[in-house]
Computed example of a mutant assay.
Amino acid sequence: MSSRHRWAIAIWAAVLLVGCASTPSPQEGARLSPEARDYLTEALDLMQQQSLHRAEVDWKAVRAQAFDRAGEARTPAETYPAINGALGALGDHHSHFFPPAEAGEADGGPDVVNAPTARQLPNRIGYLALPSVNGSDRTYAEYVRQGRAAAAATDRAGACGWVVDLRDETGGGMWAPLAVAGPILGDGPVGGFVTPDGKRAVWSIRGGVPYQDDSPQASAEGVTPLTVPNPPVAVLTARRTGSAGEAVTIAFIGRPVTRSFGQQTFGVPTGNAPHRLSDGAVIVLTGAAETDRTGRVHDGPIHPDEEIDTPARKGTDPTLDAATAWLSTQPACKS
Rank of each mutant, 00 (worst) to 15 (best):
Ile11Asn: 15
Trp12Ser: 04
Leu17Cys: 07
Ala21Cys: 09
Arg31Trp: 03
Glu42Thr: 10
Ala43Tyr: 04
Ala43Glu: 05
Asp45Gly: 01
Asp45Asn: 08
Ser51Tyr: 03
Arg54Cys: 07
Ala55Cys: 10
Ala55His: 11
Glu56Asp: 15
Glu56Gln: 15
Trp59Thr: 01
Arg63Ser: 01
Gln65Thr: 05
Phe67Ser: 00
Phe67Thr: 05
Phe67Val: 05
Ala73Asn: 13
Ala77Val: 10
Ala77Ile: 01
Tyr80Asp: 05
Tyr80Ala: 02
Gly85Cys: 13
Ala86Ser: 02
Leu87Cys: 07
Leu90Lys: 05
Asp92Lys: 12
His93Cys: 14
Pro99Ile: 11
Glu102Gln: 12
Glu102Ser: 10
Ala103Asn: 00
Pro116Gly: 03
Leu128Trp: 04
Ser132His: 14
Asn134Gln: 15
Asn134Ile: 08
Gly135Lys: 03
Thr139Arg: 02
Tyr143Ala: 00
Arg148Cys: 12
Ala151Gln: 06
Asp155Met: 03
Arg156Gln: 15
Cys160Ile: 13
Trp162Ala: 07
Val164Asp: 06
Glu169Met: 10
Gly172Met: 04
Gly173Glu: 00
Val180His: 04
Ala181Phe: 06
Asp187Ile: 05
Val190Thr: 03
Gly191Val: 09
Gly192Gln: 04
Gly192Tyr: 06
Lys199Met: 10
Lys199Asn: 11
Lys199Ala: 13
Arg200Thr: 15
Val202Lys: 02
Ser204Gln: 10
Ser204Lys: 05
Ile205Asn: 05
Arg206Trp: 10
Pro210Ala: 02
Asp213Phe: 00
Ser215Thr: 15
Val223Tyr: 06
Asn230Tyr: 08
Ala238Trp: 01
Thr241Gln: 01
Gly242Asp: 00
Ala247His: 10
Ala247Phe: 11
Thr265Val: 11
Gly267Met: 03
Gly271Cys: 08
Asn272His: 05
Asn272Gln: 12
Ala273Met: 02
Ala273Gly: 12
His275Thr: 07
Thr294Ser: 15
Val297His: 08
Gly300Ser: 08
Gly300Lys: 08
His303Gln: 15
Pro304Cys: 08
Asp309Ala: 07
Asp309Arg: 09
Asp309Tyr: 06
Thr310Phe: 05
Pro311Ile: 06
Pro311Ser: 01
Lys314Thr: 06
Gly315Gln: 06
Ala322Asn: 04
Thr329Glu: 05
Thr329Asn: 00
